[in-house]
Design a protein around this nucleic acid. Structure first.
Lengths: 291, 291
DNA sequence: CATAATGTGTTCATTTTTGAATATTAAATG
DNA sequence: CATTTAATATTCAAAAATGAACACATTATG
């Protein structure tokens, strides 16, 4: 029994198609198809119904996915522990962070890291969703929330101070809000599906809903472009506001709680020299920033 | 990451050498060596110390075997469940039983099974140690003790009546024991490392040790040859004594408990049509024998 | 200390697996 | 109903993995 066929099987289940799985696995679509055929004939089972759009699991296939997944979990554990045992400084390391952090905080720090550890190749994965450190989407994650998965080592390295901001252009056009209550007469910029702002407001005792925002976007870059262009009042990290220019802080009495910045890696990787060096360096560098 | 490399890794650990693993896996020794090299270089670890006699696990390798084993367990579960889903009557089936049962009870029954189910190929694995139905050493086991592994379906199909026997030749030479106490003045034939006889005797309230046997062997065929040749007094299933001829039952007052005969398969396989048919047939055929 | 036994490493021809290109199919769409 | 789209199957040349044979190393053993 070829264990790799089970891995391919699982990828096809997860992606829903041979072509999707081929991309995920980094092998060609014909090969994925052949793997599935081989698995089916070696088990004497029909695992998929070759249907209208892609591959749908058959009943027999359905019965097997839990075991296949369990096997994949153990494979992940194996790979993690193996990576943790490596004391080789040479190699690459994957760091993940939100788009904002990746774009505005990390570049200079990673340059210094590069100089300090020339043997380490650094991959930066910028995205806003929580990734799975267990399946090694990344080795190190920098997030604005404390990761909840088990077996992780988390360390709070800094805090981002946030305040209400608007561009001078907006303030010239629509006036300066004097009180928090004033905000309801202004145009606000918010997130669309991300409920970070709404949750923060609820925590501050201010009720609100998605509809209160005149502009909504989940793309932070566009958010600031809207802010800069004078589309409305929004929330922005203070260090970023300085960098963007043209934007003024408002309502100092609206104390928005700082956003914590967490540096995270998997427990198994703490013994990996390369990752330990990077963790220490990033913790030091991020920690001494004035945000 | 190639999952098959982990399977090879585990085989080398279990067998202690590349050549041993190659035999176990049914691949050539150079291939096993290449797999290990590839795994080591892809993990950046030295898993084995290539030593004087075979491959000894390194510290890093030692840390990984538990996870590798866990993965193998899940692979077994997957394969079991897959086999259980098969409703294909064509195919082969592995039956395991003790050498005695394999040699004296099963042949005629398996011939009938062959006629009744011509599409099923039957493999008979004769050995005296408990095999691992979980790892599919066999699909169906016939044992004289109730298997203890979990997730097995066990069914008691018959009992073997056993009595003390000796050949006429022995009785002519050494006389007929009249009472149980008399036995201590006779030559007894016993097992060597197998303690079945001793345990049975303890259960009957008779104390004894290996040393009380004038002849000791674990090979049942040789046991009976000794019995037939008049080497001593021994224990023998009644149906077998008739078949062997020349052997007489002794001491009817020494009531030896019957040996139960258990028919066993793995729970996951109960839904496999082929195995279900064989189980039913064997249960019926073994059950109606007069033993 | 030669020899047998046992194990790993190497070479090369063969077999197997793979991927690029392409054909094919079926549903969705205008 | 033709067209687009998104998927699976097929073909064939190239790449990779494999095994047989053999070289080499080490340990028992007489």
């Amino acid at each position: 029994m070829d264990w790799n066929l089970i891995r391919t099987f699982l990828a096809v289940v997860d992606e829903g198609s041979l072509s999707g799985a081929s991309e995920k696995l980094g092998i060609s679509q014909p090969t994925v198809g052949r793997h599935i055929n081989e698995l089916e004939s070696s088990l004497g089972l029909t695992l998929f119904v070759r249907g209208r759009s892609g591959m749908a699991l058959s009943e027999a296939g359905l019965r097997l996915i839990d075991d296949a997944r369990a096997m994949a979990r153990e494979a992940e554990k194996f790979a993690l522990k193996a990576a943790g045992s490596s004391d080789n400084i040479k190699g690459n390391i994957r760091i993940t962070a939100s788009e904002v952090v990746s774009a505005y905080l990390l570049p200079p720090i990673l340059c210094q890291l590069q100089s300090a550890e020339p043997d380490i190749e650094i991959e930066l994965v910028a995205n806003n969703h929580a990734d799975n450190l267990l399946s090694r989407d990344a080795d190190i994650a920098i997030r604005m929330f404390r990761p909840t998965q088990n077996d992780l080592i988390t360390r709070k390295v800094n805090e981002l101070s946030v305040a209400t901001h608007a561009s001078r252009k907006y303030l010239d056009n629509f006036g300066h809000p004097k009180t928090i209550a004033d905000l309801s007469n202004h145009r606000l910029i918010g997130y669309d599906r991300d409920d970070l702002i709404l949750r923060s407001m609820t925590a501050l005792g201010i009720e609100g809903s998605r509809e209160m925002f005149a502009f909504r976007t989940d793309n932070h870059l566009i958010y600031w472009q809207l802010l800069k262009a004078g589309a409305g009042i929004g929330f922005c990290a203070n260090h970023l506001a300085k960098e963007l220019g043209d934007i003024e802080p408002l309502l100092p009495e609206l104390q928005i709680p700082n956003l914590p910045m967490w540096l995270t890696t998997h427990q198994e990787l703490r013994t990996n020299l390369r990752i330990r060096r990077c963790m220490d360096f990033l913790g030091e560098a991020l920690g001494k920033m004035h945000l």
